[in-house]
Design a protein around this nucleic acid. Structure first.
Length: 316
DNA sequence: AATAAAATCAACCGCCACAGT
DNA sequence: GACTGTGGCGGTTGATTTTAT
């Protein structure tokens, strides 16, 4: 007998989230905060598992998410952190405000692994790949490394080292990697603060929200039709504005592509940016979003970010 | 233009830790 | 201490998108 599933899966919806579902979840959380994920779908009127709601919120809907490609500096820092923390993606993500563990894990598996291999480094051990080392041997090392990771359940952010000290001269490391692996500690890296975010980078994604094009949602898209008014997420832009953007697909990842649209948005953002930055500077509580959500002052945030939510009376 | 292959990433699954009883 | 419920994590999958042929 295995463990009971986290929820009754019968009748629950799976797969990609629709815009309506996103709206319901976002509205519910912004109005109520998060107390118990298990009850969220029921209270929010969603046919989803609580876990699924949590994941959707954390990986996609959170207002403080930072979108877009990873910078070289972020990648280098990621490599450095991975060398010390192993596959502890959430720990690593803690060093990247606005990034999720899922995002970092994906990026690592799809890009950085490859990059390191091209540079002659083993992405698991971060050591130069020895030609004499057979494939099987590499896998052994891999397993060893993983078990080592698992055994160290008490490793905290003081970050245990994986014996990834700079290589000896008898086994020279490519120059690029020397930069990565011998880089100073986080304290010395510009823009890094060991997980303690600054007001400059904690909510960089207002841009994301204001750039989301919900209006011209492609009706043929299998995600269903949209009932969400553009003003919900972008109060200052009307449906007419959306016509400027030729990309009508619902894709929260994409940002506005029309330069004039962007210019308008920039003006809009500048005004609100100042307002928000002041607010954030007054309200910042470490990097714990969950704590943030249960914070009483959250409704102030909501008023500024999503004024229309306050007025909408029709959400179930 | 059509197709195949590769890359990407959102979402799911199962396990574990922890708190409450 | 055993049990249960919940949140969180890392591994994996598979649909979609992009690139190559």
């Amino acid at each position: 007998m295995g463990r009971q599933p986290c929820c009754e899966k019968v009748g629950l919806k799976r797969g990609p989230w629709t815009i309506e579902e996103d709206h319901k979840l976002m509205h519910f959380i912004l109005n109520n905060g998060i107390h118990c994920w298990r009850t969220v779908p029921k209270l929010a009127g969603l046919m989803r598992c609580g876990k699924s709601c949590r994941l959707r919120w954390i990986n996609y809907l959170r207002p403080d998410l930072k979108r877009g490609a990873f910078t070289d500096m972020e990648e280098n820092q990621m490599i450095q952190l991975h060398s010390r923390l192993g596959n502890r993606w959430s720990k690593i993500a803690g060093h990247f405000p606005g990034r999720t563990d899922n995002e970092i894990k994906n990026h690592w598996n799809t890009r950085i692994k490859k990059k390191l291999k091209q540079l002659g480094l083993d992405p698991v051990t971060h050591k130069p790949i020895n030609n004499e080392l057979s494939h099987e041997k590499c896998e052994e090392v891999d397993e060893e490394h993983n078990s080592q990771s698992n055994d160290n359940t008490e490793v905290d952010d003081q970050e245990q080292s994986f014996e990834l000290k700079p290589q000896s001269t008898s086994n020279p490391v490519p120059k690029e990697i020397q930069v990565m692996t011998t880089q100073n500690s986080n304290e010395d890296m510009p823009g890094l603060d060991n997980g303690r975010n600054t007001t400059n980078n904690i909510f960089p994604s207002q841009e994301m929200w204001w750039n989301i094009n919900y209006d011209g949602f492609d009706q043929t898209n299998n995600m269903g039709s949209s009932s969400v008014d553009s003003s919900v997420l972008n109060p200052s832009f009307s449906l007419e504005d959306s016509s400027l953007n030729t990309n009508n697909n619902y894709n929260p990842n994409s940002v506005g592509e029309c330069s004039s649209h962007m210019q308008q948005q920039q003006l809009h953002q500048q005004n609100q940016q100042q307002q928000l930055e002041y607010m954030y500077s007054q309200t910042w509580i470490d990097s714990n979003v969950d704590a943030f959500l249960s914070w009483d002052g959250f409704h102030h945030f909501e008023e500024v970010m999503f004024p229309c939510f306050q007025k909408s009376p029709t959400i179930n």
